[in-house]
Structure formats: C-alpha cells, structure tokens
C-alpha cells in the first residue's frame, strides 16, 4: 500500500484541462521531488492530494483511504505547505502555532512548538508579529506549521521559495517524524539542484501529465537536466550554478 497514490487524476477549470490523467505514488519513507515548468499543474496536483479541491476524474488514495469518501479522516495525517503561508500576519509565531496546535488538539503543544521554532531558527523572534518577518522567515514558520502535528505525509508546494541555501537541512529535517520514522514527502520545486539533492525519486509533470518518473540514483544531475529540458522543451529554469554557489547566494 502506498502512502499517497494518485490514479488517473484529471482536473479542468472551465475549458482548460490542467491535469490530464496523472498517476503518481509515494511510499512511506520516500521523498519524491516533482519538477515541472510554470503552469504544468504541480500546485493543482498538490491541492487535490491535500483534499482542498476535488478532481474532475480519477482518485486519490492516502494510506489506502479513498479521498472521495471524505477528507476528514486524512487531515491529521497530512502536513501541507502551499504557495501561501497559512499564517496570520498580526499574530506572533508563537500565537500562530498555538492556534494551529489547538485546532489539531495537540497535547504537548508547547514542547513541539519550542522544538520546531528552535529547529527553524525562529526562537528568538517567536514573540514578534509574523508581518515583521522576512519572506524566508515566514517560509520557515510555514514549514513549522506544516510539521506541528507530526504528519506521516508531507505535501510541499515549492517550499524553498525565499529560503536560503542554509535552509536545506531544515527541509531534510522535515523528512523525519518525531519518533525517527521517515515521512512520505511529495515536494514540488523549480530548484533542480535542491530537489535532486533531497529526492529518493524524481518525477516531471508537463502539460498536465507525468512525463517521467524514476529513481534519483539512476541519473546524474546533468543527465536529469537534459531529461528535464527535453521533456519540458525548454532549458531548466534554474541555471546550473557554479561550484560553491547557489542561486540564492548569487542573488
């Protein structure tokens, strides 16, 4: 049984068909990086898997449970980090996490929050309103929010937006649950370098279809870049960085 299984997913918005039959599986303990150009349908796929929108056709199984029967039983098992932070600007980091902890009914919320805030490097700023945070800090707090209830499944939609290169360990840390088990993680990104660094398996979504998926170990970075360029009919959106530099460092 897979942790996440998308079977023949289709989604249309009016006349525009965004997903045209997506089949994708993620096992427990597996980190799958999903690449694709803008408009490929990555965000739509993540939102369907999270139960935020319903597919036009096809089905989603989370731990064998069909989402069509209702998302309610799956919510505590999924952590989602979307394009938006899901954080209240006028509340502090601590207040935001406390609120979500109450919504999830967490018992040991204070301990979880302290651990996550320290892990994300936000402990010193925990009592500042979120609106005073930089984009990268908000993104770290959004990751802490997604991890707060220690979900076995993590759906991350471009979580590296605004994060510096030093944040890679944070994303690696997100793979492991509180009891040391590895989560099932589906991660969309435009950052080929970071995605390849973290992934066990890679997939490319283009034109609403999974056009490639395979084990990360089977491909070199350069081989994957060429594959990506071929399937997406354009060069990778992140230029190959010089050794020792990253896109963010250069910026």
């Amino acid at each position: 049984m897979f942790a996440v299984e998308a079977i023949g997913l289709k989604k249309s918005f009016g006349p525009r068909q965004v997903l045209q039959g997506v089949d994708l599986q993620v096992r427990l303990g597996e980190f799958v990086a999903l690449f694709g150009p803008n408009g490929a349908g990555k965000t739509t796929l993540i939102r369907i898997l999270a139960g935020l929108i319903r597919p036009s056709a096809g089905s989603v199984l989370l731990g064998g449970y069909d989402l069509a029967k209702g998302e309610e039983p799956t919510r505590r098992h999924i952590g989602v980090m979307g394009h938006q932070t899901y954080l209240y600007d006028d509340l502090t980091a601590e207040e935001n996490l406390t609120f979500y902890a109450r919504m999830y009914g967490l018992h040991n919320a204070a301990g979880c929050m302290a651990t996550l805030l320290k892990q994300m490097g936000l402990w010193a700023r925990r009592r500042d309103p979120v609106r005073t945070y930089s984009r990268g800090m908000q993104q770290r707090l959004a990751l802490a929010r997604a991890l707060l209830h220690d979900p076995p499944i993590l759906l991350l939609d471009e979580p590296d937006t605004g994060l510096d290169q030093e944040a890679t360990p944070l994303l690696q840390g997100a793979l492991v649950e509180a009891d040391g088990r590895r989560r099932a993680v589906l991660f969309t990104t435009h950052n080929l370098e970071r995605g390849l660094e973290l992934a066990d398996r890679v997939a490319i979504l283009s034109g609403g279809r999974i056009v490639y998926q395979g084990e990360r170990a089977a491909l070199s970075n350069e081989g994957f870049r060429q594959l990506y360029a071929r399937f997406c009919k354009s060069a990778p959106q992140v230029p190959e960085p010089a050794r020792g530099f990253s896109e963010n460092n250069l910026a």
């Binding site: 096992r27 427990l28 597996e30 731990g63 449970y65 098992h77 009914g105």
Partner: peptide, 29 residues
C-alpha cells in the same frame, strides 16, 4: 531509498486512522 513500512491492514476506510504517531491528539469541537 528505505523500504516502505507496512501500513495497518484492515478495512480501507479505517486504514489511515491506525497510522502511528508520536503526537497525542484530542481535538474537541
């Protein structure tokens, strides 16, 4: 890649609710 861990076997609708977690939950309305 690590081997996939076995999930709880049972009725499909209850499979996910048996997933283990280190966190205690008791959300009340």
């Amino acid at each position: 890649m690590p081997d996939a861990e076995p999930l709880a076997v049972g009725h499909q609708s209850s499979a996910i609710s048996h997933w283990p977690s280190a966190i205690c939950y008791s959300p009340s309305a």
